[in-house]
């Protein structure tokens, strides 16, 4: 068990990529699913493997961290910003600027080219665009190449005919462009076979190391967890309120 934090909150925040205190959220409607996280902390540059049963609330937690859902109570601090205090558009803007998201599958707009898909977040994040510089297309191509995508693929008119593995690499390049400090990946490899999965994780980790971003990756594949700095069971996180390492 890690030592309970004794420092004042303000001093701790700047070092944490994510800091949750007594965070609770309830889905509206009859199901009334409730999520409560007494305490959770992710350090900057830390790579966290998050697992849990289906329906345990992984996607809900990620949506809260991304600022798409609004907590009912508690502290939701991401990269030193209390998201609970931001307006809805400000949270959307914050997400665009600071967080790269990779979904399980169907990550891409099928009617846009792979390159346009990679460039998509820059349209909503002016600071992130400034970090990329004026040659946005070249940066998209570079990232795609580093993710092992052939160059002639990028300018295809649509992304619909890419293989699942290729789609996930494009999605990773999109999450990484403009070096957002936090990457959130929701089962990004579940549709890939083992070889493709390993290759994908290798490429993703090398890019994250290069940018120094923090990573939360949700997965059911426990084989992967040893490659991460820390592994957390969402069930433990909700019960113990601690780091819940195994």
């Amino acid at each position: 068990m890690p030592e309970p934090d004794t420092q004042p909150l303000a001093e701790r925040e700047d070092k944490a990529a994510i800091l949750l205190q007594e965070l609770s959220f309830t889905w509206p409607g009859p199901s009334g699913f409730r999520l409560h996280v007494p305490h959770f902390r992710l350090e900057r540059g830390e790579r966290l493997f998050l697992f849990g049963e289906s329906g345990a609330g992984k996607s809900t937690l990620l949506s809260l961290v991304c600022g798409i859902l609004e907590p009912a109570a508690g502290e939701l601090n991401v990269l030193g910003t209390d998201l609970a205090k931001l307006s809805r558009p400000a949270r959307d803007r914050f997400r665009a600027e600071n967080i790269g998201v990779i979904f399980q599958m169907f990550n891409l707009l099928p009617y846009a080219s792979p390159r346009d898909n990679i460039l998509l977040p820059l349209n909503f994040a002016p600071q992130r665009r400034n970090r990329v510089g004026s040659e946005t297309a070249a940066e998209a191509d570079r990232l795609a190449e580093l993710m092992g995508l052939p160059k002639n693929l990028l300018t295809r008119r649509t992304s619909a005919d890419l293989s699942v593995g290729q789609q996930q690499r494009v999605a990773a390049a999109r999450a990484l462009i403009g070096q957002p400090p936090l990457i959130i990946a929701d089962e990004p490899t579940s549709a890939l076979d083992r070889a493709a999965e390993d290759q994908f994780i290798d490429l993703l980790f090398s890019r994250i190391e290069a940018s120094g971003a923090s990573l939360i990756m949700v997965s059911h594949d426990m084989r992967l967890c040893e490659r991460f700095d820390r592994t957390v069971n969402l069930g433990d996180l909700m019960q113990t309120g601690g780091g819940g390492s195994i």
Partner: peptide
């Protein structure tokens, strides 16, 4: 819905 979730994830507001 997929398309909208993707747009939301990359920072598009519901107004977008």
């Amino acid at each position: 819905r997929r398309e909208m979730a993707i747009l939301r994830a990359v920072g598009a507001t519901p107004l977008t």
